[in-house]
Amino acid sequence: MAWEPQEDARPPVDNPPAGYAHLKVLDPFEAQLAPFYRHTDDVAGSGDARICYYIDDRHVSGPDRLATAGALMTFADATLGWAAWDGAPIATIRLSAEISKHPPENSWVFGETHVTARDDDSLTIIGTYRDENGDVLMTVSSRWKTFG
């Protein structure tokens, strides 16, 4: 299997939030939950990235139709990985999420990532995820192994 652009399970919206454009994901599992959108000013591998996605019926559970931790953490893994990925293979070795609020179906989630430490073979990346009002939904810290 190769790291190739995947076909999203659902097509991207015509009008994503201002400044954002469709992001082609490279992982089949992420494509199941996609589409995702990246800020057009940001570059993969730079460490700092802004990415958003729309919570729909695939991402929620329960009578209140709230996004699951699994869906939110998959989105976090995808966004942190995109921010860190400069073309060389990387792998998540730890991801810790603090969820303050589970967003409802039919709402946007906006993530911002930042590399806080980097050495020869690992990266530490944090992410903050907010709703459309700017309220924090989740904070994530992660450690990544880099190869090559």
Partner: peptide
């Protein structure tokens, strides 16, 4: 296949989603 990452391993998001289900 739909649970994998581009490298052919099970995607971390799938493992975290399953863990959330198991612990939950």
């Amino acid at each position: 296949q739909r649970h994998l990452n581009g490298g052919g391993a099970v995607h971390g998001g799938m493992l975290m989603s399953f863990a959330d289900h198991v612990l939950g």
